[in-house]
Amino acid sequence: MVTPDEVRALSAAAPDTRRRADSGRPQAPAPDGGSHVAVVVKPEVMAAPHAADMSAAAVEALGRQGVTVLRCAVVPAADFAARGDLLLHYPRLHRVAVDGVAALTSGARRELDALREEAGVRDVLPAYVAMAHGGLSPRALEDRCREAGINKLGSGSYASVTEVGGRPTVVLNGFLPALDQGYRTPDASVGLLECHSERPVAELRDEVLGALHPFHAAPGSLRGALGALAREHGIELSEGRNAVHLSAGHLEGMFQNWRYFTAGDGDGLDGTSFGRALVRAGVDLDAVAALATDPDVTDGAGRTLSPHGATENLDRDEAVRLVARWTTTKELAG
C-alpha cells in the first residue's frame, strides 16, 4: 500500500532526475475480487512546484473512498507523450482525431449523421485536418469547439459544429490536439496509480472520481479534492483540463495497469486481476492482447463496437463474458 508521503517523495524526485520514479512491485498482487483500475493524475495539476501536493492529495482522497493505492509511478509528462503512452492511453480519441469518420463505430456514425442533419452541415473534418485547413493552433481549435459545444457520438468520439476556413464544419475530437500539447509541458509530470477497491467500477467512476469539471465536483470526490487544491494554487481547470483519469472499466483498467506497471516487471496480462479472471474463464490472453488498441468488434448483428466503450462501467462477470465472445468467435471487425 502506497502512502501519501511515499507518493509525495516520488513526485518531488522525478523532476530532478527527469526519469520515472516508481514505488516498486507490491508485496502481493491485486486481489482477484473487486475492481483493479488505474488512476492517472494529469500534467495540468502535476506541474512544479505543486506536483507533490497534488499526488499526495489524490492518494488521500482515494483512501477516504475505500480505494487502496498498490503502486505509484511519476513520469515526466514529455516522456509519457514521446514514448507513445498518451496515444495508447486514448487510442480511439487519437484515431478519430486523425482518421475522422473512418474511425467511428457504426453507432457513432449514426449519431454523426443525425447531428449533421439537425445542423444542416455537410463537411466533417478530423481535428488535425481541421487545424491545417483553418490555420488554427491546438488551443484555438479547442476553444472554438468548446464554445460551439461538444457532442458525444460514442466511445472516444466527439463532435462540434463550428466554422473552419469560413465554412460550417463538424470537427471530430477537436480538443485532442490541445490535450496532447498539454503533456509536453517541460516541468510537468504524470502520476500513475495502480489501485484496487471492493467497490464496483461504475461506483468508482461516479462517486469516487466526481464530476468532469473539478471545480464543480463534490468535495469528497477525487476531482473535487484536486480541484480545491488547484484553486488554492491558482491553477486553471475545466471540463477538458479535468485533472485526473480513472479507468472506465475492467478491460481498460487491465490494459492500463499492465502497460504502466506489470509489463515493466516482465509480467503478462495475467499479472492483473482482470487478466486472471479471463484465464479462469478459459480465454486466450494472446487474443485479448489484440483489444489493447480498442479496435472495432461486432455485436453479432453487423454493428461495430468499441471494446473499451462497450465494457465501460460493467461488472466483472459481464465484462469477462463479452471479452470471451469477442476473442473466441473472432468478432474483430478489422
Rank of each mutant, 00 (worst) to 15 (best):
L246Q: 01
V208F: 01
A263G: 05
P26T: 04
Y158G: 02
A281M: 07
M46D: 06
D79H: 14
S306A: 03
G66I: 01
D265E: 13
D180W: 12
G275K: 00
L87T: 13
L212I: 14
T68M: 11
Y183E: 00
D22K: 04
F274C: 05
R199D: 10
H94I: 04
A292P: 05
L104N: 10
R122K: 13
S155Q: 14
R325K: 12
A230F: 02
D187E: 12
R146G: 07
T185Y: 11
E232F: 09
V74E: 00
L10G: 08
L172D: 07
V67H: 07
A47N: 08
V244D: 01
P26K: 05
N313C: 09
S35D: 08
L204K: 01
L179C: 10
H245Q: 12
T17D: 12
D22I: 05
R223G: 03
G282Y: 00
P168N: 10
L226H: 06
H133P: 01
G156E: 04
V98I: 11
G84D: 10
Q27R: 14
G134M: 05
E118Q: 12
H196T: 02
G300D: 02
D16T: 15
P214A: 05
Y158W: 14
R18G: 09
A56H: 05
W258C: 10
T262H: 06
G271H: 03
V288S: 04
Q27N: 08
E194H: 13
V190T: 09
V283Y: 06
V171R: 03
L322A: 06
D53E: 15
A81G: 02
R64I: 03
R146M: 11
P4C: 07
G165V: 08
D53K: 07
G191Q: 02
T329P: 00
I150S: 12
E312S: 11
G24V: 00
N173M: 02
G33S: 12
C145W: 03
V190I: 12
L141P: 03
A289N: 04
E203T: 15
L251H: 05
A77G: 11
P31E: 06
Y260Q: 15
H89N: 03
V96L: 08
V288T: 00
V59K: 00
